Every structure is written in structure tokens, then in C-alpha cells.
Simulated scan of single mutants.
Amino acid sequence: MDLSIDPKLEDFRADVRAFFANDFPKDILAKTRKGASLTTDEVRKSESALGKKGWLAAAWPKEHGGPGWSLEEQYIFDEELERAGVPTVTPMGVIYVGPIIYTFGTDKQKERWLPGIREGREGWCQGYSEPDSGSDLASLQFSAVRERDEYILNGTKIWTSAAQHADWIFCLARTDNSGKKQEGISFIIAEMNRPGITVTPIITIDGKHALNQVHFDNVRVPADYLIGEEGKGWTYSQYLLGHERTSYARIGGKRKQLRHLREIASHVPTGGNRRLIDEPDFARKLSDADLAVDALEMTVLRVLSAVKDGGAPGKEASIVKVLATSAAQQITTLYLDAAGLNGNRQFDDSVTPDWLSKDASANFAAPGLSLYYGTRAQSIYGGTNEIQRNIIAKRVLGL
């Protein structure tokens, strides 16, 4: 296993860094740094900027319109994107459904959907979870009934990220109830503006609109919106989930947050001449978070090394998912710790403490609290960490 990055790739890193510093939309960066949510038009603007550069579908092979980068180049690109504060690419198109379409779809389907995905012109969302299925995805009851040259879709999907921005949704749908529950599931696509589709927002504890419930009432779609073979949707979903779970790592973003926390802690006073960075308990938690990100990075590089040698993200992706979500929660809890100490101090209205004027410290509390709330859900979505630990125990450790 080779965990090193070729020094020759530093020129590539410099090119990526220069693009984000000079050519990426500044208004999008400014809004993201404030922790504000993007509108649908702003999401399209952000992703189209990458698409015009040919960098949105960073992991796609050249034959399908991707840049054809090596795994090392993809890794560097992800690091620099996170470091620059670029909004996280909506994964449902380029990471989830795109590889399913170019791997299992027909030539006609590839021609229809791949250009819009890789250019950032069309947004996608994922219809997997259902209100009554819990963690047992295979128990889904969302139905697709074939009627001549159409499928009729009925049911409800929940926790659907970015549905309010999406033009298309890809769904796991039950097309057969006669055999094992995994065998009767198919992979079907639909436009979000089809008659019979209703999107209900789910507002999270931080006041943001990221999640939705999507209702289907006799929604008709062409039969050729079925991807691959009928009844093979479960197989396709497992292929997709391996990519989804490795995409959670976001090493560059986590290291950027740790640097930010060190700057904050170097300015926030805790009494006398002491700063937060000098408090043993906080310093220990910060070091623990550093180690967690180091462990995550080593694990991601191990998975990438396996893929480079001809493998694919499989059961080991569950390890990445658990480590990534745990590290994210460790880091964002430190924002909460710093904000709590900040809020406990009282100042004379006529005096502004010097440390409040520091860029690293000013206005960090609200975005930090939003990050804290957001990462509470990371150990649930994409397959709960409890389920991932069962997978690790059974399929990795053989218990």
C-alpha cells in the first residue's frame, strides 16, 4: 500500500488552488463562509463554474466526459476545494447516479443524462429512505407498476436532501413482491415537475431547509426511465453506497476547521492571561480531533490504494463512514465549547475587547453552532453508524 503523494503533482495542486482563488465566483464563497444556505440559482452557479472547467465530475473517466484524473489528483482536488471553502458539490448527481447511469444504463440514457450532470445544468436528488422503513432499506414499499410503455409510481420518500433544488430524482422502487425483498427492487428516474409529485420541506434544528419529504401520487414515467434491469435495483444501490460512504471523508474541510478552531482558541480569553488554547481540557480535545482526522485520512488512502489496484469501494467504505462522521462531530463540538465560553463572558457596552476584532474569532459562534447541529445527523444518514458497525463486524472481521 503506497500512501504517498507524488511530488510532481504539486503543479496540479497549484493550478487547482489558483482556479479557486481567482476564477471561482466570489459571491458564492462569501455566502458559504458565513454559513448561509444557497438558493437553487446559486447552487447551479457554483456547480456550473466547476462544470465549465470540466471539474465537476472529478472522479468520472474520460470516456464519460470526466477529466480522467488519477486517484491522487482527485484526492488533491477534493482537498483544495474544501480548503478554499467552495460549497460541497451536491453528490446525488456526480457521485451517486452518474456512475450508475454510465455503468448500467443504455447508450441513449447516457446521452440524455450524463451531460447535464457533469456540466452542473441539472440537479438531482435521491429517493431511498421511506417513513416506515427505518434502517431496513430493503423493506421499502414505494411501488412502480408497469403499464404498457410506462411505470406508475406511488409512495413517499423522506429525508430527501436537496429535493428543493433538483430537476430529477432517482428512486428505489418495488416492482415485484413475489420473492426475497431485495430481489423485487428496481432503479427508476423521474422529473421532479411530473404531475403527482409534491415536495414538503423538513426544516432542521438549525433553521435550515436541506431535507424534504417527497410524495408520489400515480406519477407516470416512460418505461425507459428504468436504469439497468428490472429487479436489479438493490445491486445497483449497493454499488452506489460504496461511493457515497467514501465521499463523506472531506479531509481538507476538516483540517481547515481545525486550523480555524486554533485561531479562535488563540484569541478567546478564559480569565486572567489565559486563552482557550491554554486550557488543558480544550487542548486535549483539539489534539484528539487532529488524531481522528489523521486516522481517517490513512483509512481513505488505504481504500483509494485498493481501488487503484483494481478494487472498488466496498465493505471497507463502512469504516470510512464511521470514522468520518465521528471526526466531524468531534470537531464541531469544539465550536460549541468555544461559543459557550464566549457567551458566558460579559462586557461593558462601551468597550469592545481586542479579541473580538480578530477575523478568526469574530462571528464564529452562529456558523459554528449550525455546523454542530448539522453534523449530529451525519451518523444517521447514508446508513447509520450502528448499521455500519454491524457490516464491519460481519463482512470485514468475519464475526
Rank of each mutant, 00 (worst) to 15 (best):
L3T: 11
S4I: 07
I5H: 06
D15A: 11
V16R: 00
F19P: 03
F24C: 05
A30Y: 06
K31I: 11
R33V: 07
K45R: 14
K45M: 14
K45V: 10
L50D: 00
K52M: 09
G54A: 08
W55Q: 05
A58H: 10
W69L: 13
Y75F: 15
D78Y: 07
R83G: 04
V89D: 02
V97M: 08
G98P: 00
G98L: 12
I101G: 01
D107N: 12
R112W: 06
R112Y: 04
L114S: 04
L114Y: 02
Q126F: 08
S129T: 13
S129M: 11
S143R: 11
Y151N: 04
L153W: 01
W159Y: 13
A162R: 05
A162N: 14
W168M: 15
F170C: 12
L172A: 03
R174V: 07
R174I: 02
N193W: 03
H215F: 08
A223C: 09
L226G: 01
H243P: 02
G252V: 05
L258M: 08
L261I: 14
A265S: 15
H267K: 15
T270L: 14
G271S: 14
I277C: 14
D281L: 13
D281K: 13
R284A: 15
D309P: 03
P313I: 03
K321D: 13
V322G: 00
T333P: 03
N342H: 12
F347S: 13
D348G: 10
D349C: 10
F364T: 02
G368H: 03
G382M: 01
E386T: 15
L397H: 08
G398R: 06
